[in-house]
């Protein structure tokens, strides 16, 4: 469903953010995208969301290819790819329900269908009772749930989450992660960018893509041993997932 073919992204000022990355994310798969700050995680997500075009290579999401997509097709793609941010990005003057309804309104949803769908989504993320609360009245975890519900409003094939637990305490983080797991179990693919090692340690069964200096250095599904030059520090994801140093 999502395929990176030898993708390189080069920024004119800051240099190469991603170098020759190739991987495939299947339908309804859950993937941790990890690596230290500046490793290229956000670049990968923005490439999937087609906010960026690869400098080389090709990104394919469902029927959309970065080499062929036209400007006017991007909104169609975005409706199939939900995005959740670390800082929630909710509209403060709207209630939780209105924030979700906003996403439906701006994508041309039928007016009569909006309210029931908003209530269903709020119920889905466990916030049915907080529908009329403004973001300022919600906890961090609750805000992120509203942001997730909003990302789900257009029934995306995949949810991209950029450090979604970065601003949350441990309990809230676990709650939000469990929500992602539930959504994934219902058929939505999830690519969750994080450097939260606790989260990775708790879910060793989940596929991990590890980036370092813009290179994909490890893919737990391919079962390829980690190259010796990669992640020499103690925080190597490979070591965390495998429970020991790289062979």
């Amino acid at each position: 469903m999502i395929r990176f073919r030898n993708v390189t992204k080069h920024y004119p000022r800051s240099g190469t953010a991603l170098a020759d990355a190739s991987f495939h994310v299947r339908k309804a798969e859950f993937v941790f995208l990890t690596g230290p700050s500046g490793a290229g995680k956000t670049t990968v997500l923005r490439l999937v969301h087609m906010e960026l075009a690869p400098t080389e290579g090709e990104v394919i999401i469902s029927r959309f290819s970065s080499t062929r997509i036209r400007r006017r097709e991007i909104p169609q793609l975005r409706r199939r790819v939900g995005f959740v941010f670390q800082d929630f990005r909710l509209l403060e003057r709207f209630t939780a329900a209105e924030n979700i309804a906003f996403a439906l309104q701006v994508t041309g949803a039928n007016r009569s269908a909006i309210r029931p769908k908003v209530m269903r989504l709020l119920d889905h993320v466990g916030l049915a009772s907080r529908a009329s609360a403004f973001p300022a009245e919600l906890s961090g975890g609750e805000r992120q749930r509203v942001a997730i519900a909003r990302a789900l409003a257009t029934d995306p094939l995949v949810l991209l989450a950029d450090e979604p637990t970065g601003n949350l305490d441990e309990r809230a983080s676990l709650g939000v992660f469990e929500l992602f797991k539930q959504l994934n179990a219902l058929g939505t693919a999830v690519i969750l960018a994080t450097h939260d090692t606790t989260l990775l340690r708790r879910h060793p069964e989940t596929r991990v893509l590890e980036l370092e200096d813009g290179r994909l250095v490890y893919d737990s599904r391919s079962d390829v041993p980690k190259p010796p030059h990669a992640s020499s520090g103690d925080s190597s994801i490979f070591e965390l997932v495998r429970g020991g140093p790289a062979p």
């Binding site: 969301h49 006017r72 909104p75 409706r79 939900g82 509209l91 996403a103 701006v106 257009t154």
Partner: peptide, 17 residues
């Protein structure tokens, strides 16, 4: 700008924005 960024993010068309 925040509203516009969200609209763009969820897939509102350029004309709509």
């Amino acid at each position: 700008s925040t509203e516009i960024a969200i609209m763009e993010n969820v897939g509102a068309t350029a004309g709509f924005i």
